[in-house]
Design a protein around this nucleic acid. Structure first.
Lengths: 168, 168
DNA sequence: CTGACTCCTGCGTTTATCGCAGAGTTGATC
DNA sequence: GATCAACTCTGCGATAAACGCAGGAGTCAG
């Protein structure tokens, strides 16, 4: 496959910087493989990359512990009984970060991004039905202080959903 | 945690329906656990759910093979060197599904959803930089036949990203 | 009742994971 | 330039998990 790059990527390079978690070429390779199959064994991962099994295990563990990567099961919410999903575009006044955090605290909110353009915030909601969606919008989203406008885009069909962007 | 429900969910119930992949309570429990930790061992998963290890392994394999669930590593693209992410809201004329498929074929597009509201399609782009984003919009998105309007929301900060909605 | 089907269990074999001690490098300090 | 601490890798034995398969039990159609 692709060439293995530096077997010894400057050991001891990242001292001082405590929890820095360098994303060297090896870690990127690890992530790329796990983006395709999150359950790949450390052993085969090690063979593919050209490192010992223990070293790969160590690196994966560090990536997970550091919150830089997580390995999870993903599904189409529609197949799990969440009949109603929606993206909400918000315009707000005040502290963007704080409002984003408030929204992030809502369990039914699975995605919050601060952005530039016609909306200040984009928020994805996962609901069981229309009633649930209405409740959320009415009780949890619109009442947030600083929210001046709220436009809802109800999902009709999820056409693509990928997590393997690779790395650069 | 939650009570274990029916140990024997009507064996042999889903005959006839060839590749149906029933989402019974057990499968939902499996998904819920793997949404939290995709690398959980079949053994502990089996103990938590109250089935044999082999049965759980069989079910997980079927969920994966059937494309109903995938276990992958997820990361914040920004930490992986993708400095520029954006959501694009499109208004289109013509066949929504076909246009959605065309967009889905673009590698840099990781999310396409057909929706109701001010936009017909929401598309998420993962780019290395502004140049890349400009290229994409100019060469791959706007030229698509039927696209009448295109509004871009550049990501400034990802505030939340979850894949564990649980199940209903 | 019989047969086909599905799903589960139990168990032996193979494979992977875990934990730890030791070697090699690097950068800072003296 | 020698020493030391910090980091990462390797190798290996003990433990644990995954795999494959044969057998049992339930369900449904004829």
């Amino acid at each position: 496959m692709s060439d293995v790059i530096a077997l010894h990527p400057h050991p001891g390079k990242n001292r001082g910087v405590t929890a820095d978690l360098a994303l060297d070429q090896i870690n990127k390779q690890i992530i790329e493989h796990l983006q395709r199959d999150g359950r790949m064994s450390y052993a085969t991962l090690a063979k593919e990359i050209g490192l010992s099994e223990a070293a790969v295990r160590q690196r994966v563990q560090r990536l997970l512990d550091g919150g830089l990567m997580q390995i999870v099961a993903v599904t189409d919410p529609l197949t799990l009984g969440f009949a109603r999903q929606a993206m909400v575009g918000l315009k707000v006044n005040g502290d963007l970060r704080q409002i984003a955090d408030e929204l992030a605290a809502v369990p039914e909110v699975d995605y919050v991004v601060i952005c530039a353009g016609g909306f200040d915030l984009l928020v994805e909601l996962v609901c069981t039905d229309d009633e649930h969606l209405l409740d959320l919008l009415n009780e949890k989203v619109r009442p947030i202080k600083g929210v001046t406008s709220c436009e809802t885009f109800m999902y009709l069909k999820l056409a693509k959903q990928t997590y393997a962007w690779g790395t650069r």
